[in-house]
Design a protein around this nucleic acid. Structure first.
Lengths: 337, 337
DNA sequence: CATAAAATTGGTAACGTTGTCAAACTCTCA
DNA sequence: TGAGAGTTTGACAACGTTACCAATTTTATG
């Protein structure tokens, strides 16, 4: 059994090396003005004792914790895991660390998590979306540390935002549908359009159709979470209500692919009888024939960019970006429209 | 603009309430032996000042940080997001917090992340898999805090493990294939079988076939990450090498579904010409016809159980579980076998 | 009412680190 | 050789909290 050997402290390292605590501290954090001989002696002692710095103590004294509070609504679709992946990639090799909070699409919960995470003195906050509870907005506005809102870019950030434009997404697909000559267009969403992001996309889509003399014939928002099954169900409901629709824009790829499979199974030819398009550009789309028309959202890129900006800001770089940063969407034409 | 109002401390709250710092501390952490009147006075002062406790300071003095280091290899398939989801669900309402590390399937990186996370004095560690670098194993063994290894249960945990048996998964599917009467069986994996988990599954599958007088005719391990496209590619290679195979077990659902779509597109009837089975039981499987035969891995359940055990252990509950905890797999028969 | 026991409050000293300042040492150059 | 500048090292005090113990007040008991 392991004995209860207490973790060595800087004091132990200093004693072992025959130097003062503060000198050991300087060596460990690579501070300037340390002689080579002292540096080596301390390093040797640290290795011999298996010293690991105590960042809790360092944070208390040093004021900056290097912990970054990351608050996302969920892990259930690929969107937020991809963002976390991007953030982590940016933090690789730095001293920043992600402390995770999951709001489960509940603004009150988001606020509670934010409060809790702030008690860790984070050096920065990355939070999803531009819409928060009044209390959360107030807290975020008052923060001294960088606050980066990710995903959305159709509004004013509290500090800095990295995301894409839902309106732009709606416009891109509306333009495509118009260009393709579809006339009776529908829309299928899921989960009561939470978060509000997807609604913005639908409204922009509808508005752009209107500019082109077309109207959104019908839309069906399912209550269930996005899935193939939900997509099929949404399409079924929509078509039973408005049978002569010739093209449908879905809130995401899962829904669209589910609908596509439903069409296959029911002899509805895509895109001849019905055109389908999705949103997100998930990898699952690869390898499914016909290839789905969709718009790729730059999820990992958003995470990486947000992470990089956080690094720059915390590193005190004067050229660190601020304000609203709009990441480009890529239209991925497929064979379903 | 927000002025640089320093965050109020316990000292401020105590002064405002006219009590001592330590009394304020007691109230804030709901310690016993505090009169109602004092409690109310402090609470009022705390609210008035917008006090947020500084957990960094608390952790330094109190020794336990309530930070839980969670180390996963990636976010790219649904497996680890689901586990994180489960962990977070268990931590809801508690004071435990996830600090995230991502090893990118690299054991050296895993060890580095572990060292880094330990500098935060975590109250516990949740790490994926039972196999770690020698250095990481040594560190984990020496830790005073709970260490829970998740996903795998075919080996001895350092402290406690929550996972499922890869062997059992292999056996379940082998038995199913035998029962169905398939004779010429193949296997397709991806990404060089990293982590080693999937290899265990394949070997157990092969061994069980052997017990039934069958051999694994051929197997193809792709280098690329799992995806529909990789599944299709793997199947193509396998079939070109061993054309008379009549059933294939895939390392995961993505691969199997990709292969299935490939079959659809190339007039290979499933399961008549070729039977396919996957592993994981991802939601995408719902709504795809024919429904894929697979085995559901209890991902969120593993996360939730690990989180609960962590809570129990840290709460000092004597009935907290220890040792190897095997979570049941569910065989999900579909129409592809 | 006196006294013991229990409940409530406060003082002091850490926890392990680093910022600030000062002391000591080294080197350069007149 | 000595002044001045630069480099290297160290002492001390803090960061905000809580553990430990002592002091005080309240309550219970005979």
């Amino acid at each position: 059994m392991a004995k209860t050997a207490p973790r060595p402290t800087l004091r132990d390292v200093a004693d072992h090396a025959g130097v003062s605590v503060i000198s050991a501290s300087r060596v460990m954090r690579e501070a300037p003005n340390v002689s080579e001989s002292l540096r080596v002696r301390v390093k040797v002692a640290a290795t011999a004792l298996g010293y690991t710095p105590n960042r809790i103590a360092g944070s208390l004294r040093g004021q900056s914790s290097d912990l970054i509070a990351v608050i996302v609504p969920s892990m259930s679709n690929n969107v937020f895991p991809d963002i976390l992946d991007g953030i982590d990639a940016a933090f690789q090799g730095s001293s920043l660390r992600t402390v995770l909070g999951m709001s489960r699409y509940d603004m009150a919960e988001e606020e509670a998590i934010l409060r809790d995470l702030l008690s860790w003195n984070p050096s920065g906050v990355i939070i999803s979306g531009l819409e928060h509870s009044a209390g959360a907005s107030e807290i975020l506005s008052g923060l001294q540390c960088p606050v980066i809102e990710v995903m959305d870019s159709d509004g004013e950030p509290i500090d800095t935002s990295v995301g894409f434009s839902m309106s732009s997404a709606g416009h891109i697909m509306a333009d495509h549908f118009v260009e393709r000559g579809y006339r009776r267009i529908g829309y299928v969403g899921a989960w009561g359009e939470r978060p509000a992001r997807s609604r913005k996309r639908r409204l922009a889509f509808e508005a752009r159709l209107a500019e082109n003399g077309l109207s959104l014939v019908d839309h069906q928002i399912e209550d269930a979470q996005s899935s193939f099954a939900t997509g099929a169900a949404g399409l079924t409901t929509l078509m039973s209500r408005s049978p002569n629709i010739d093209a449908v824009f879905f809130a995401n790829d899962d829904l669209a692919l589910g609908a596509m499979m439903h069409c296959h199974a029911h002899g509805i030819r895509v895109p001849n009888d019905l055109a389908l398009a999705g949103f997100n550009g998930l990898d699952i789309r690869d390898g499914i024939t016909p290839r789905l028309t969709t718009i790729r959202s730059p999820r990992a890129e958003i995470g990486a960019r947000a992470g990089q900006i956080m690094l720059d800001r915390i590193g005190g770089r004067s050229d660190a970006e601020r304000g609203r940063i709009d990441m480009p969407l890529s239209f991925l034409p497929g064979e379903t429209t």
